[in-house]
Nucleic acid binder design. Structure first.
Ligand SMILES: NC(=O)c1ccc[n+]([C@@H]2O[C@H](COP(=O)([O-])OP(=O)(O)OC[C@H]3O[C@@H](n4cnc5c(N)ncnc54)[C@H](O)[C@@H]3O)[C@@H](O)[C@H]2O)c1
Ligand SMILES: NC(=O)c1ccc[n+]([C@@H]2O[C@H](COP(=O)([O-])OP(=O)(O)OC[C@H]3O[C@@H](n4cnc5c(N)ncnc54)[C@H](O)[C@@H]3O)[C@@H](O)[C@H]2O)c1
Lengths: 213, 213
DNA sequence: TAGCTAATGTTATTTACTTCACATAATATA
DNA sequence: TATATTATGTGAAGTAAATAACATTAGCTA
């Protein structure tokens, strides 16, 4: 095993492997090969082994991998052997969906603070969370040791909200606004851009039709 | 100009360029250089020119690009010089957010059918759309010439829903359920996986801490 | 109109990622 | 215990993508 820069594509796949392993585990499967994982998630067996090789040797030659063990290893690699508290800004439609989504909890995430600047939204409840004014952010962050923030505000507010989050101590941001954020190097940002994904589909549909002509 | 296989990363960036160009256009900017686009969206100028070069020559040497023209070209390349009707299955929290999202309309997308299998949801209204039973899908698809479907159902229903969508004639699927779908070659699928993005953040936070030790 | 500047389009280079191929090791079998 | 089988881990080969470098062309200036 050598430790080099890990491609982001590898991290993405690890996340997918780990969820697939959880599913196998729930179904009582105890052992699995790279080929089976590959089939299950739609990549090549060599890719699975290469991805894992960045982090160590987890299998047994001639046998395969122990599902429970590999599941734990992948979760550990992803930093999911602990609990993560999150905050979210923008209690709109998407914010509401994210707050009520149980899939995050299942991976060890909890949204511990929801913030908005609209007085008609502040004080409202989403599950057991009360929507708070932006001024409460520092306190919540401190109390719950929050390092990751989610932006679900309109595009025009996103940059300003991101700047404020960083002032409040956020080290990583998941941004749903379709706008490239301008942030200091040391802050990790990832965008979730739904329109882009749709447009990849339309591009491909158009491209295919063109090929058929 | 040569026509080769276009990297998906290029298509992704084109989508982002085109939105950035729309913004410039709204702000009354009429001319732009690859360097300015690059700064605006966070890539290198060479990357911008390389991406465009897959599709033709759109600029003027020594001058740059005409914003309106390049915007139209990029939209055309992405297949957005026309209107796209979509259907969505799963009128839950995420489905509701997607149906009410105005950003899709602004790019030429309309959701023309929302389907669910929960009797308590069927008949309810989301904006001007009524939630329909699954049986209505073929009719809606035919009437509105729909080629793209969105899956916003729980994970366990996603594969079955995808299969049904394809039977109804869908050629492309945007899948929000965190599960790799097993579908015929000719159907374009893209997954939007929010947990994966979060887990890239936790991976990077953990990795950084490790480096600091 | 000649010379200068700016910024594209494109080829060359470098870097990154994936696939291939096989030596290695564990287990099963005779 | 030898042999066959299976599937990992990994270096080498191949492919793809990003970056760099530069030749080309448009417009500006004197
Ligand atoms: N809804 C979707 O399906 C969807 C899809 C793709 C992208 N997005 C993006 O996600 C973001 C949210 O979308 P939405 O549909 O939930 O919007 P929304 O309008 O329903 O909600 C936005 C919320 O942000 C709050 N807000 C506005 N400015 C703020 C500020 N400065 N500080 C704090 N809060 C502020 C508003 O009060 C509102 O509650 C948008 O950027 C949108 O482009 C949404
Ligand atoms: N809500 C989020 O923020 C979020 C985040 C990430 C991923 N997701 C994923 O998106 C999907 C939807 O999430 P949600 O929170 O909106 O769930 P939800 O439970 O609120 O909604 C799901 C809807 O699908 C319907 N449904 C179930 N089975 C169906 C079937 N066989 N045919 C037709 N309709 C069916 C249900 O009746 C329900 O209305 C899930 O796969 C979830 O994992 C959601």
């Amino acid at each position: 095993m050598k430790t080099l820069r890990v491609p982001e594509a590898t991290v993405t796949r690890l996340s997918i492997y780990s969820r697939y392993l959880e599913r196998l585990d729930r179904n009582g499967v105890s052992s699995v090969s790279s080929g089976e994982i590959a089939d299950g998630v739609g990549v090549s067996p060599a890719q699975v082994r290469k991805d894992l090789a960045y982090f160590g040797e987890f299998g047994t030659r001639g046998v395969g991998y122990n599902v429970k063990d590999l599941m734990r290893y992948t979760l550990k690699i992803l930093g999911l052997d602990r609990h993560w508290n999150l905050i979210l800004v923008g209690a709109g439609n998407l914010g509401y969906a994210l707050c009520t989504y149980r899939g995050f909890n299942m991976r060890g995430f909890s949204i511990v603070g929801v913030f908005d600047n609209d007085l008609t939204k502040i004080g409202k409840r989403i599950n057991d969370l009360e929507v708070l004014p932006m001024e409460s952010m520092p306190e919540i962050v401190k109390d719950h040791n929050v390092r990751i923030g989610i932006i679900a505000t309109p595009t025009r507010a996103a940059q300003e909200v991101a700047d404020y989050m960083i002032k409040c101590g956020m080290q990583a941001i998941l941004n749903f606004a379709p706008l490239p954020l301008n942030l200091p190097e040391h802050v990790e940002v990832r965008n979730v851009d739904l329109s882009v994904k749709l447009e990849i589909l339309t591009f491909n549909l158009g491209f295919k039709s063109a090929q058929n002509v």
